[in-house]
Amino acid sequence: MHKIVLNLLLIFLAHAMEFFFYNLFGRSFMPNMILLLVIYLNLFLGIRYSLMAAIVGGVLKDSFSASFFGVNLFSFIVCAYLVTIVKKYIYVKGSNLSRIFLVCVFCVFNVVIQYFLFLIFHKTSFVETLKYVLWPQLIATLILAPPTFYYLRQCALKYFV
């Protein structure tokens, strides 16, 4: 039970951090903290916690969003499942580089899934998506990935194990 509560706290914290960075830096630096949490939880604690983070984090993000409800929820759930498959091919335990590469791959997956979802409902420019959504999100998320994983690891070792 306490692991579930801690997981929920981490999800809320990740969501709050996104607002924190947005208030501080605006659109120029907006990392996807919930995606980082989903990836980390899958790598170190398994798919159950990752899926929980994906569902709760997705619902939180969608409730603040003015676009269609379910976009973030769906993309995070798909990413949570895909991490389980993709990590077998590219993740090497203990390797920071493979972890960063995994984050890179899933940032792209996340944006691509959301792009196709938006495309169903209204016309969305692919070039603009690459320039103004994928690229800035990728850079910001990759910059924050190492310290985020470091602190999540400290938290996991102390409270989850």
Binding site: Y22, M30, F64, S65, A66, Q114, F118, Y132, P136
Partner: peptide, 13 residues
Amino acid sequence: VGRDPSFWNSSMI
């Protein structure tokens, strides 16, 4: 009273 930190949207509350 609030904003949405998203690349896909520009919205506020």
